[in-house]
Nucleic acid binder design. Sequence first.
RNA 1: CGCGGGGUGGAGCAGUCUGGUAGCUCGUCAGGCUCAUAACCUGAAGGUCGCACGUUCAAAUCGUGUCCCCGCAACCA
Length: 500
Amino acid sequence: MKNKFYITTPIYYVNDNPHIGHAYTTILADVLTRYHRNIGDDTFFLTGVDEHGQKVKQAAEKRGLSPLEHCNDLAPRFINLWKKLGIEYSDFIRTTEARHIKVVQSALQKAYDKGDIYLNEYEGWYSVSEERFITDTEKDSGQFRDIKKLKEKNWFFKMSKYQQKLIGHINANPQFIRPESRKNEILGFLRQPLTDLCISRPKDRMDWGIELPFDKDYVTYVWFDALLNYITGCGYGSDETKFRKWWPAEIHLLGKDILTTHCVYWTTMLFSLELPLPKSIFAHGWWLTGETKMSKSLGNIVNPLDMIDQYGVDALRYFLMREMVLGQDANFTLEAFIKRFNSDLANDFGNLLNRVSGLIGKYFNGIVPEPGNKTEAEIYIEETAGNLEGKIKGLILDMRINEAIEETLQLVRSVNKYMEHSAPWQVAKSDLVRAGTILYTASEALRLAALFLSAVMPQKTSVVLDVLGSLGSKTSWGGLKPKTVLKPHEALFPRLEVPK
RNA sequence: CGCGGGGUGGAGCAGUCUGGUAGCUCGUCAGGCUCAUAACCUGAAGGUCGCACGUUCAAAUCGUGUCCCCGCAACCA
């Protein structure tokens, strides 16, 4: 029986073009999905876009488009980027789709019938220019002009009702919120009594949203709209068999900014709907440039599309996965990218392929030699490679992707060392059998390294595997067949010039 | 006392939960090799782990205090 693995990214807000942050989360989800598929799990990977709300409406108006026209223009930009990044999602959801609207309305009705939704008057500071209520903190910041006190009737969700239940769930499931520091943050947040959640907007003020099934003068606002995508996407309300198969998700991936939304709002909504909670919510950190966060307003966004065109998809995926310690913030600089590219991908990994294929070409006419008797050196390489699979599995399940990659690179480095010490280019002059053993061992280790990196760099690793005639081969030692004819190839990752 | 994260050789980080010779990558210096993408390999220099006190046979790791940096404070991944 296969394990199932359902992973989600947040749905991205379409008020602007996709940037490195969106790309990062989505690549991470893709890497995890590919990894699980590689080890034989049945996988479902959901991503998509969030298309309702004030900011989308405003962005559309600015361009002289209707909100839907604006969304129809933006959604493909995400889809195209994912294609370029080699993202293999299972489904891409848009919150304006009929299937989703149906789910949102039935969920709202269900919560309403249960008595979890009620009408109340809300009073707060309203920014006329922004056309929205602002928080006290925002008011105190003094960045908003044109503000006034405003009273408005709205619908509220009884989040407070589920507070204790949620605290109990978090305590009973240590893996529920990861990393642990985030769990502590949420538990800290839950020490205060929860207030109920405002989930509506009157249509006369904001009409770009899904109408409340029990009050046609209102649309639902954000929470019941966006978060429910996770169950719409896997069949809730449309395909019961599919839904039962996939829900609950193994992982909701998200950035640390929307931690509370997912850990508190979403979970209490699920309680109200009487659905199981996701197995795990994982919040990662942010990409920083220098000291500051990469953000639209600062204009220091790295455009992932430019990176792909210049350096290749796999290099970008590699850098993002290798450089960030999951859960913490990381720095994105071109300098670090180039260093990483040259030292890991060009000098260690790509160069090893050249060494091996060059030598086999020269001394064995490009045909993989039969390995002979093993010495201690071969046994060491074989053991290192053999232990790697289990080690990587532990690290990936623990969301330590960067360490899993580093372990694999350590194998690559040890093979380079092995080559240096056993010098097959000299041995070949007197002992072809011995040289063959060395080259077989090195190629086989390289094949395994490529397999272990394939979730991160699907394109380049399949080039390596193809050269070795080993596409689709297994992760056990000996998968490389002697007598295989190596295919010619280019340099895998040509070194980059360091900009002065 | 709002909440959280961080301060480890020149740079970037791991290690801190489960005390016991301080580890990785990059950079620097010297040497080797020459199959390879001026790549690779070997060796070296460089850290009193922010600071102070405490617990202990033993502290980067535990406790207390203190200084500094950075986020968050209800929809930027």
